[in-house]
Measured scan of single mutants.
Amino acid sequence: SPISQSQFIPLGEILCLAISAMNSARKPVTQEALMEHLTTCFPGVPTPSQEILRHTLNTLVRERKIYPTPDGYFIVTP
């Protein structure tokens, strides 16, 4: 029987999409709110552990794709 394939999207890209959507909705993007958003909006995607989430967010900050503030994470705009 054929095996169904799913699209692979890197966690960093999913986080950027989620942060962008939450920023547009003016929702604060904390790590907890981000986990909740991922569970709700990406039900088929396994939720990352806190450690993996933190590591991926730090990587995105180093890559200058997002930036942290006391009010949460935001997408870097050119």
Rank of each mutant, 00 (worst) to 15 (best):
L17R: 14
K27D: 03
A33G: 10
F42Q: 01
R54P: 02
T40C: 12
L60Y: 01
I66R: 00
C41K: 06
I52C: 10
N23V: 05
K65V: 12
T40G: 09
T47W: 02
R62H: 09
G44R: 15
Q7A: 14
K65F: 07
L17K: 14
I14E: 07
T77Y: 07
L38N: 00
I52S: 05
N58S: 10
G44P: 08
I9W: 12
N23M: 03
R64A: 10
E36P: 01
L11M: 10
I52E: 10
E51F: 04
G72I: 01
P70T: 14
F74E: 12
F42R: 12
E63S: 11
R54H: 02
T69K: 03
V61N: 01
R64P: 00
I19K: 00
L38A: 02
T30I: 03
C16Q: 15
T47L: 08
C16R: 08
N58G: 12
T69H: 08
L15I: 08
A18Q: 03
V76K: 14
D71V: 11
P10C: 05
L34E: 00
I9Q: 15
F8D: 11
I3F: 03
S24A: 12
P70S: 13
P70H: 05
Y67D: 15
R62P: 00
P48D: 02
S6W: 03
A33R: 09
M35R: 06
N58I: 10
I9H: 03
G44I: 03
P28N: 11
Q31F: 07
L38M: 06
K27P: 01
S6F: 07
R62C: 09
E32M: 07
I14F: 03
M35E: 06
N23T: 05
I3Q: 06
A33I: 02
F42M: 14
M35V: 07
F74L: 09
V76M: 14
L34R: 00
V76D: 06
P2M: 13
S49G: 08
G72D: 10
T59S: 15
C41H: 07
P46R: 05
H55S: 12
I14T: 10
Y73T: 04
T69Y: 02
V45W: 14
Y67I: 13
L17W: 05
H55W: 07
K65W: 03
S20E: 11
N23F: 01
E51K: 12
P46F: 01
S1G: 03
G12C: 05
L57K: 00
A18R: 05
E32I: 08
P43H: 12
T30P: 01
A25V: 10
L11T: 02
Q50I: 14
A21S: 15
Q50G: 14
Y67H: 12
T30Q: 13
